[in-house]
Design a protein around this nucleic acid. Structure first.
Lengths: 235, 235
DNA sequence: GGGCGCAATATTGTATACAATCAGAAGACG
DNA sequence: CGTCTTCTGATTGTATACAATATTGCGCCC
């Protein structure tokens, strides 16, 4: 059994538990699209919701801001980030640079146990889709990519990918085209197969095409429909 | 004039000014090797030094911890990070993946003004070396790489590179071999030339070989000599 | 004399109180 | 009637006080 730290808890050890709890909760809500881009995250509100003081909430928000899930405007508060089309392009370019290489590496390192985990992820994803829980399906889809980075055993790059996927969730919330839908399942499935076969070359190619696919289903021109405050849309 | 945000201040806008001030000061001290890896960063000490409350110091330390310049151990305090040999390898692998591509992009985007900035950087670096201020030379050398990422106009990747360079500074502090020294100047010089010529291919290759060079001057086996506490070495 | 346990001290984690700043509404003026 | 000003309320920024936890030094027992 190799000693791979869990990516999701990579920062957890050195951050006070409650701060992490709040950060995780908000992060999850954003990933599941329960919090739309642009939504204001008032400190007092969050403090009350989670039963902690503003001190904790502030630390959590700063943590999220560092990962660019949240934008903090001085003296104005924290808001769920709204990546611009330019940022969206950057994020996907970065993913297309990092993830294929990482997928290859994962394919070469993967143990049967790792493959099992990936298959479980896919199963959960399907289950979520079956229940029409699109938010959760999206979250799990992201976790799938993160899991691959973890398997690759390069914590540094995995950390980068994790933040890119987090931002991708926001980008999808903003720029996803209705028409295209759950076309992903197949891509993930064949990717796991390549990894199970330890076929690095194929895993790399599949990941690349998967990302290009994903990128192409975005409509970076017609951004709009953040369901947030009307004010925010009109201003 | 293009509208490229200054990398160094990318987070500054949304972070309270004083927090950023403290974080920058500590970060600079680490980059210049005035703070050795493993050094304890007591909250009260820093608070007194910079004339702010622990609230500010804590926020600054958490920010630095996120960039992995500082390690925060629960209930135990903050310490200047000590990257392991494995981490060191990861960091340089990541740099070798990201920076050559970025250098190419920079070469294609660079304006004469950008080139001037780079040349100025090199001049400052030489000046620092002339005065035997090795710490500052190192800091400037890092900034040179960051500047290239900025010119490439990909803020996301530039941000990653920035954190990698910060960690590289720690790695150099820990694993640098005495024998090899200021061999870098030439590499930076020819790199600027390639960028000035808008020769992306050449810039990419030069950056790659420069990084491989740098990587090879590290001795990842004989780590030691952190001037910090004896305890820290022996434990 | 050496090792262990406990108390004293120091340091970090959290909550709260106060100050600074901003957003919005009422009112004055053109 | 619309625009600008000013004031009020709400929200964030900072400092401090208290609680929880770790570290250190002393004394005790073996």
């Amino acid at each position: 059994m190799t000693n791979k730290p869990d990516i999701a808890t990579i920062d957890a050890a050195h951050r006070p538990a409650r701060v992490q709890t709040v950060a995780d909760a908000v992060s999850l809500a954003i990933h599941e699209h329960r919090l739309a881009p642009g939504t204001k995250l008032g400190e007092d509100d969050l403090a009350e919701i989670y039963g902690v003081s503003r001190t904790i909430v502030r630390a959590a928000l700063q943590s999220l801001a560092h990962g660019q899930l949240v934008e903090i405007r001085r003296n104005r508060g924290a808001f769920v980030a709204q990546p611009s089309p330019h940022e969206a392009r950057e994020v996907f370019e970065a993913r297309e640079l990092l993830e294929p290489r990482t997928a290859r590496s994962a394919a070469l390192h993967a143990t049967p146990a790792d493959v099992d985990i990936l298959r479980t992820h896919i199963a959960n994803e399907h289950a979520a889709i079956a229940v029409k829980d699109r938010g959760r399906a999206l979250f799990l889809s992201g976790r799938f990519h993160i899991e691959i980075a973890r398997i690759a055993n390069q914590a540094t790059i995995a950390g980068f990918i994790e933040t890119l996927i987090a931002r991708s969730s926001l980008i999808i919330a903003l720029y996803w085209r209705r028409e295209s839908a759950l076309c992903e399942s197949h891509a993930h499935h064949s990717l796991v197969q390549a990894i199970a076969d330890n076929d690095g070359q194929r895993a790399e190619e599949l990941m690349r095409s998967h990302l290009v696919d994903l990128h192409s289903t975005l409509d970076l021109h017609h951004a709009a429909p953040t369901g947030a405050t009307l004010k925010d849309i009109l201003r």
